[in-house]
Design a protein around this nucleic acid. Structure first.
Length: 809
RNA sequence: GCGAAUGUGGCGGAACUGGUAGACGCACUGGAUUUAGGUUCCAGCGGUUCAUUCCGUGCGGGUUCGAGUCCCGCCAUUCGCACCA
């Protein structure tokens, strides 16, 4: 029948779908162990790209392997279908985001099905559908009740000309990327999830996760825990200024306080100080980007002074551009002698630079000097002593870089936040019975002005849940990261109309056994989802602490060393490859060409030609084989070559199983398959038991092939007389008795250099191995005139090292 | 600057606990089959050498009978964060 992927693969795919070969249910758990393979929720941009192909193929190999091992495999896919591109398409082409999204999903789904990925499509979800986003709203209400949601002011990117808020990615060089209108920072009242309540747990939880080190490091850094102290400086006739410091020991070196321009004290002073007001206004006018990238430290002296808590000295207070309002307390004690930034600032403004720490590196801790009663103490001891001595003016404190999660978006295409604004009762959540709050259809997409939601009168009109009076419906929508923070739970119970998911289903499958996706989600998505999962646990909805036990980040797919992108014009369309080579060849190449976590360079079609060559060879091997019903003869009746083939078979089963189950090293799975195929070629045509030996080996081989090249495996499985699906057949077991050879090759080294090889019986004792090595013909010349100091025999028995030294002359 | 990772043939990469460096594939070279191209098959393919001679896993040291693997010090590349008090 040979290898005809373009006609055979679609047939096999329809058979799988018709017979529900990929479907799974919670009832399947019991006799079978659950296994949950997940890939990151894709955005339906319209076309799949090679990155998707790589990601989904990797997940599918794991899913198919675990299924064959008898696990109940959960393997779903859905669509992260809210977000800016759909709204931009609406503005640009006048097509409604829902229609654009629906069409894109249909196209991409067809492409993915053509790859033969074994998703249980009955569990497909899409976040833009009310069936899904109503549960975002429901969860928001639960979190509101628990106090996980709050409202606060935060700066947004505001474009005056458009009268709209822009997302960070829409702002380039301080301008709207579409129109070029200037963008400034402006505070707006928004909703937040109090993720910082979980900062410590999010940090500690990383320890137990089987995740790549760099991802864990990124999260640790993102959470950014630092220990120090909070300390209040008295300011005459003003409220005290609280600072956070990790270097309490340097307190005697303070020569100024630097406050953020948003600090309340600075805001109050600016009212009466024109110079300060001008400074604040100038910094405020800078775009977010300008301000983040400015590396010049600037400040403006205020008329105020703080009192040093120990010396009583008056310390000038500055407003400074390098102090961030949302880290620590928004105020810094300036210690120029022992902090690089403070030093730069003090030099610029002519402030004193008193040295108070003796150490080799001025920025590092050491021993205190010029610090009164604390002189001579170590930095660590001094910090403790100072906090104690200051009583209620200082406390030990921990600060995080992690900020609360602002979830408001002034956009149409997202989950409406389920609240109303009542003139009487303020912001009130809508009752659960009123969910979902649906997105209205009658909106205008102009790209200018406030959110399109404000153009729907029907949507805006609401009633206050407390007084029943007229209220304005909230027009902010949720960050799409909310959608992707719990979707993996909805897959487990996608049709539930009473709850987002049932706890029984969640307990059955969670945590996810293998999560595969791009490293670009190392911080945001992977922290938000962990946070949501912990909130859900505290709501009693899930039992485990962490959602994703094992994470693998696959490398990017490149073309000639560069990221594939439309603008570079170097995109390789998966459809083109599928149309020429079929799914199996593409899958095989994706798995074989590079280790999972490394970049994969698509240098041309040579690689996939090689994959096709291999698959053809495999097909030919089975075509040329004559079916044999005879039982496999006992080992002792087989010839050496026949035994060699079966030994290679069992060694390969062992290796591939380890690579898939333990090491997650998929590229060597393909190498092992190729080696085994090469070994098939070494079996002589005249081998007396060729029929049964080959039959036995091919039946096992086809199963090993099935996760990577499932279509061809299906076809060959049938050709070899198998019934049912290859994908449902049992994974072969490696027989240790077969893996061991009765003779082993021993490498003989002299002083660590390979000098010869001898074959000894597997059962040979150490003494026999030593004898054989010393008698080895190639080794003898290297022993001439030398004294044998010792002979090393490592426990693996595959090597003998003879250590010699020169005798006299 | 801080953090993490990675350096192995012309290329992608193997080498699992320190034990035959270069598996497997791509490209290339020669040969066979073929009218030819393609396909398929066989052989070769790190450098060097008269020689299985010596050299060789980014560089320099070290530990060891033995180092791609472990330790110390560099260099380079990639990624992430970046005024974090």
């Amino acid at each position: 029948m040979s290898f005809q992927p373009l006609t055979q693969e679609p047939d096999i795919q329809s058979k799988w779908l018709e017979q529900g070969a990929f479907s799974i249910s919670t009832q399947d758990i019991g006799a079978r162990e659950p296994y949950y393979t997940l890939v990151m929720l894709p955005y339906p941009s319209g076309r799949i790209h090679m990155g998707h192909v790589r990601n989904y193929t990797l997940g599918d190999v794991a899913a198919r392997f675990q299924r064959m091992r008898g696990k109940a495999v959960m393997h779903p896919l859905g669509w992260d279908s809210f977000g800016l591109p759909a709204e931009n398409a609406a503005i640009k082409h006048g097509i409604h985001p829902a229609i654009w999204t629906r069409e894109n999903i249909a196209d991409m789904k067809a492409q993915i099905q053509r790859l033969g990925i074994s998703y249980d499509w009955d569990r497909e979800i899409a976040s833009y559908l009310p069936d899904y986003y109503r549960w975002n709203q429901w969860l928001f209400l639960q979190m509101w009740k628990r106090g996980d949601v709050f409202r606060a002011l935060r700066n947004v990117n505001w474009c005056e000309a458009l009268g709209t808020v822009l997302a960070n990615e829409q702002v380039v060089d301080g301008k709207d990327e579409r129109t070029g209108h200037p963008v400034v920072q402006r505070p707006l009242e928004q909703y937040f999830f109090a993720i910082t309540n979980y900062a410590d747990e999010l940090l500690k939880g990383l320890e137990g996760l089987d995740w790549p080190d760099n991802v864990k490091a990124m999260q640790r850094h993102w959470i950014g825990r630092s220990e120090g102290a909070r300390l209040r400086f008295a300011v005459p006739e003003q409220p005290a200024v609280e600072v956070f410091t990790t270097r309490m020991d340097t307190l005697f070196g303070v020569s100024f306080l630097a406050l953020s321009i948003e600090h309340p004290l600075i805001e109050a002073q600016a009212d009466q100080d024109p110079k300060l007001r001008a400074f604040v206004a100038r910094i405020q006018a800078q775009s977010r980007e300008e301000r983040m990238t400015a590396d010049v430290k600037e400040g403006q002296r205020t008329a105020l002074h703080a009192v040093h808590p120990f010396t009583g000295e008056l310390i000038p207070i500055f407003a400074a551009n390098y102090v961030l309002m949302d880290y620590g307390t928004g105020a810094v004690m300036g210690v120029p002698a022992h902090d690089e930034r403070d030093h730069e600032f003090a030099v610029k403004y002519g402030l004193p630079i008193p040295k108070v720490i003796d150490s080799t590196d001025p920025w590092e801790p050491g021993t205190l000097v010029n610090s009164g009663e604390f002189d001579g103490l170590s930095s660590e001891a001094a910090a403790q002593a100072m906090v104690a001595r200051l009583g209620d003016r200082a406390d030990r404190a921990v600060t995080f870089k992690l900020r609360d999660w602002g979830l408001s978006r002034q956009r149409y295409w997202g989950t409406p936040i389920p609240t109303v604004h009542c003139p009487e009762h303020g912001v009130q959540p809508v009752p659960e019975t009123a969910l979902p709050v649906r997105l209205p259809e009658d909106v205008a997409f102009s790209g200018a002005g406030a959110s399109p939601l404000t153009t729907s009168q029907a949507f805006l009109a609401a009633a206050c849940p407390i007084c029943g009076g007229p209220a304005r419906r909230e027009t902010d929508t949720m960050d799409t990261f909310v959608d992707s923070s719990w979707y993996f739970l909805r897959y487990l119970d996608p049709k539930n109309e009473a709850l987002p998911f049932d706890k029984v289903a969640a307990d059955a499958w969670m945590p996810v056994d293998l999560y595969i996706g791009g490293i670009e989600h190392a911080t945001m998505h992977l922290i938000y989802a962990r946070y949501f999962h912990k909130v859900l646990r505290d709501l009693g909805m899930v039992s485990c602490d962490e959602p994703f036990q094992k994470l693998i980040c696959q490398g990017m797919v490149l073309k000639d060393g560069f990221k594939m992108s439309k603008s570079k014009g170097n995109v390789v369309d998966p459809d083109e490859v599928l149309a020429r080579y079929g799914a199996d060849a593409l899958r095989l190449f994706m798995i074989f060409a590079a280790p999972i976590e490394k970049e994969l360079d698509w240098t041309g079609f040579d690689g996939i030609e090689g994959s096709t060559r291999f698959l053809k060879r495999v097909a030919r091997l089975v075509d040329e084989h004559t079916l044999s019903a005879a039982p496999l003869p006992p080992r002792e009746q087989l010839t050496r070559e026949e035994q060699d083939l079966l030994r290679k078979l069992h060694q390969t089963i062992h290796r591939i199983t380890e690579d898939l189950a333990v090491r997650y090293q998929f590229n060597t799975v393909v190498s092992s398959l190729m080696e085994l195929v090469n070994a098939f070629g070494d079996l002589p045509l005249a081998a007396p038991h060729r029929g049964p030996v080959l039959q036995h080996a091919l039946e096992a081989f086809v199963r090993l092939l099935s996760p990577v090249a499932p279509h061809l495996a299906e076809q060959l499985f049938g050709q070899l007389g198998g019934t049912g699906f290859a994908m449902a057949a049992a994974w072969p077991a490696a027989d240790p008795a077969w893996m061991a050879a009765d003779e082993v090759l021993v490498v003989v080294q002299v002083n660590g250099k390979v000098r010869g090889r001898v074959t000894v019986p597997a059962a040979a004792t150490e003494d026999q191995r030593r004898e054989a090595a010393l008698a080895c013909a190639e080794v003898l010349p290297h022993l001439q005139g030398k004294e044998i100091a010792k002979v090393i025999l490592p426990p693996n028995g595959k090597l003998v090292n003879i250590v010699v030294k020169n005798t006299g002359e």
